[in-house]
Amino acid sequence: MNPIDRRTLIAGTVASAALAGPALGQTTMTGPFPLPAGFERFPIWPGQAPGGETVHVQEVETLRRPDSRPDDGVFAHVVTPTLTLLRPAKPNGAAILLIPGGGYSRVAIGHEGYNVARRFAAAGYVCFALLYRLPGDGWAAGPDAPLQDAQRALRLVRALGGRERFDANRVGVMGFSAGGHLAAWLTSRAPEESYRPVDSADREPINAAVAAYLYPVIQMEGPFVHQGSRAQLLGADPTVEQMRAYSLDQHVSADTPPVFLAHAIDDPAVPVENSLVMLAALRARKIPVECHLFEDGGHGFGLVAPPAAPAPWPELFLDFAKRHGL
């Protein structure tokens, strides 16, 4: 066997392993905090993530707050993007890809990943929480590195439908805060190939049945920008063209799936106007959309327990999702 053939064979073997995911009951890729019971984690790329030749950061997981539980962790400097899987006790034949937030400087995998996955697994959905790379860590794709991971993750989730016993055409995408920006980027813009295909999963379309953006970052220009997310994504002094290119209300595709929006009016970090402009853009494109604006709740409410929770948004989302076939 010549060297080229040997490399091809090795790459194909590694890719097949990534597509297969962990064996039933196997837990891989755990960090300093153990995965909560019932969850499994596996990398989304066979081998290293693309464009990392000059990346020298060290991946780290810490607690979201000093008083957080061990499963309320956040990741920074993500080197190995992963999906963390939770299977439902009573499957309904559908799945949800969860994209936690963190201002594009970290990923709140516990608060908006594990915690939310438990809620929707209880409703019958196979849940996948995405740990994605961050744009400020030197990846060759720069601001598009998170999109590469999101596109790859959605394709991989669809490809796993047969193994996990859900319909690949019944996959929802839900994102929070900056993860809401990434979810909207993934689902509301016309898909553009952001990386070279690596295995058979990349033959899957970048399609979702339903999308949900919770207190999302949408705009990168104007008075309602979340400055931290923009700085991480585009740098300290982006051009007008860059800001417009990454303002998602400017690029809604006619092929966007039905969208669920939820935001607290008193959000001090990401102004509610981000959801309002997205609502207007979706309506202009005649995309089915439902928007819930809560009087209070602040930013990042996730699944905060009552009385701090602004409203039972998961139940509102479930009603919306079922009406649209998810």
Rank of each mutant, 00 (worst) to 15 (best):
G162K: 13
A211Q: 08
P146V: 05
N169H: 07
D202Q: 11
L160Y: 15
R196F: 08
A153K: 08
T187M: 13
S200D: 11
V171P: 02
P146W: 02
G161S: 05
E193G: 09
D167V: 12
T187K: 02
R163N: 12
P146S: 01
D144K: 14
A190C: 04
P197I: 09
F166T: 02
A183R: 00
L156V: 00
N169C: 06
A178I: 02
N207E: 14
A211D: 07
D199C: 12
P205Y: 12
L156W: 03
P205K: 06
S177V: 03
L182H: 06
A211K: 03
V173A: 10
A145C: 10
R170T: 01
Y195H: 14
D202Y: 13
G180Y: 04
R152L: 06
G136W: 00
R165T: 13
V210E: 05
W139H: 11
E192D: 13
L160D: 07
R163T: 04
G180D: 10
A150E: 04
R189C: 09
H181N: 11
A209C: 12
A211G: 12
L182K: 04
A159M: 11
V198E: 15
G162R: 05
L154Y: 02
D199L: 00
E204R: 12
E204Q: 10
V173F: 13
A201I: 00
A208C: 05
L154G: 13
G179Q: 09
A209G: 00
A153R: 08
F176W: 03
N207R: 13
A140C: 02
S200Y: 07
G175A: 13
G136S: 01
G179C: 03
A141D: 07
G142I: 01
G172K: 00
E164L: 15
R170I: 11
A184I: 04
P197C: 15
P143S: 09
G142W: 05
P197K: 07
G136Q: 03
G175F: 06
Y195T: 14
D202I: 10
A145F: 09
A141G: 01
R203W: 06
R189M: 11
A141E: 03
A209V: 04
A211C: 11
F166K: 06
A183D: 07
D149G: 03
E204I: 00
S188I: 14
G136C: 01
D137W: 13
E204M: 13
F166E: 03
V171N: 01
D144Y: 00
Q148R: 14
V198R: 14
I206V: 15
Q151S: 06
F176T: 08
D137I: 12
